[in-house]
Design a protein around this nucleic acid. Structure first.
Lengths: 238, 238
DNA sequence: CGTCGTATCATTGTATACAATGATACGAGA
DNA sequence: TCTCGTATCATTGTATACAATGATACGACG
């Protein structure tokens, strides 16, 4: 337990099924597929080395997630994610993470609490060393533990969706400055949960999200997107 | 505008694309496909008169919504929705509907506000007459207007998902007793939005959800499910 | 009698063939 | 020149064929 292997991303979790889905998703989130770009089933299939069938299945899922829009008999278009979307997500998350922290206080298991403590402890170590990649991984994991601890598959599902959504953006901003402050807040949340103070945990988790968002804005959310979109100029087929 | 045709359900909206998806979804929500039942692609396809391809696409979407669980190379199983899930959804919704009402206060258009007023007015009429089916339709529409008015596609998306989730359950309970009280609360929310009081709108929308849930519990959520599951004993193939 | 290994089969995963749809280009007629 | 109609083509929608996987049943062996 408490396996913090930072090299292997979550991708291995989707070894076979959902590989196509997650690769397309990743390409949308990191800007390889740009906003309003039309995605053709054959083209995407060729890029990923599969036929149209799995691509179509992935498209249907991505539409449900709101990342693309499918116009029947016409095509699939990347909707992407605007600055306002990110802001909205953080506000929504601030509410739901608060609720999650409260429920986690009531339902967390000993194992989960142990992992949380270990997580905070390790994070402070990495923060000191300046190992930002590991810190980001621990940050993600901290939230995941809380999602699992809240004992609500509905809430867990919602939050995991949102979490993935902003992972890429957050990782960048976290790497710039907020790593340590963020972990201090994690510690406070963990202590509130451990003490059984649901109200406090809720309040702290809520504020934690707001802070994360404000820090992101301060560091220039817009620029982050610009950079990402220019990172790799993708060769056009036609 | 303000088209309250209660005969034609939303189904016509999905005339071609997504027809399979929505029919399977409906069958899960109304208990035709029971919890933990294994759904076979060919069987479901035959029932709906289509081949495996559209069924598979629908399965992938339904899994993302959490209505079924797909075990790779094995099968798809109905997860259904437990009493606790319903409770969790209502609590989550109470937070998000509150936020939605606040944002709607800031962003609602004249047309949307007009439709809201018309909605409340018509609903009071139907409540007096005891036309519960129309009342339920108006109730759904009221919330949809608010979702659209909040000017956040992220929040709208979330809430519409949840809304559909509990539509069937809520329709039943609404039909029993709470129709008029519910509309009174809608009126208060509408007035708060009209007056530009976001705080109040948020508080009212929040309470509205809590009340809806508590009413549902009072009327026996458990029995509702029991009845639904027994409504139609579906013939088993094997 | 129990356990392991293998053959068989049902089912899912993927690719491909064909049908249906919508967009575009081109040409005839006003 | 403009407009409308039609042919053509690219692309999506659906069905089906084949491959891969996992479950089951059965029999050999201890």
């Amino acid at each position: 337990m408490g396996n913090y292997n930072v090299k292997e991303e979550v991708t291995d979790k989707y070894s076979l099924r959902g590989r196509v889905f997650h690769r397309i998703r990743e390409n949308i989130l990191n800007g390889t597929y740009k906003e309003h770009e039309e995605l053709k089933e054959v083209t995407v299939g060729e890029e990923l080395g599969v036929s149209r069938t799995p691509v179509r299945e992935a498209f249907r899922q991505l539409e449900l997630e709101g990342l693309i829009q499918i116009i029947p008999n016409k095509g699939a278009y990347v909707t992407g994610i605007t600055e306002k979307d990110v802001k909205d997500i953080y506000i929504i998350r601030s509410l739901l993470e608060g609720l999650c922290a409260r429920w986690a206080t009531e339902n967390i298991t000993k194992e989960q609490l142990d992992e949380m403590e270990e997580n905070v402890y390790l994070a402070s170590f990495y923060a000191e060393k300046g190992h930002m990649e590991q810190l980001a991984q621990l940050d993600n994991r901290f939230h995941e533990i809380m999602y699992e601890a809240c004992n609500s598959k509905m809430l867990e599902h919602q939050l995991k969706d949102f979490h993935e959504y902003v992972l890429r953006v957050r990782k960048k901003t976290l790497a710039t400055s907020r790593g340590n402050a963020s972990n201090k807040e994690h510690e406070q949340i963990m202590l509130a949960i451990k003490a059984g103070d649901g109200e406090l945990a809720q309040e702290l988790a809520h504020t934690h999200m707001i802070n994360a968002y404000e820090n992101m804005v301060k560091n220039g959310l817009h620029e982050v997107y610009q950079k990402e979109n220019l990172e790799l100029e993708r060769e056009n087929k036609k």
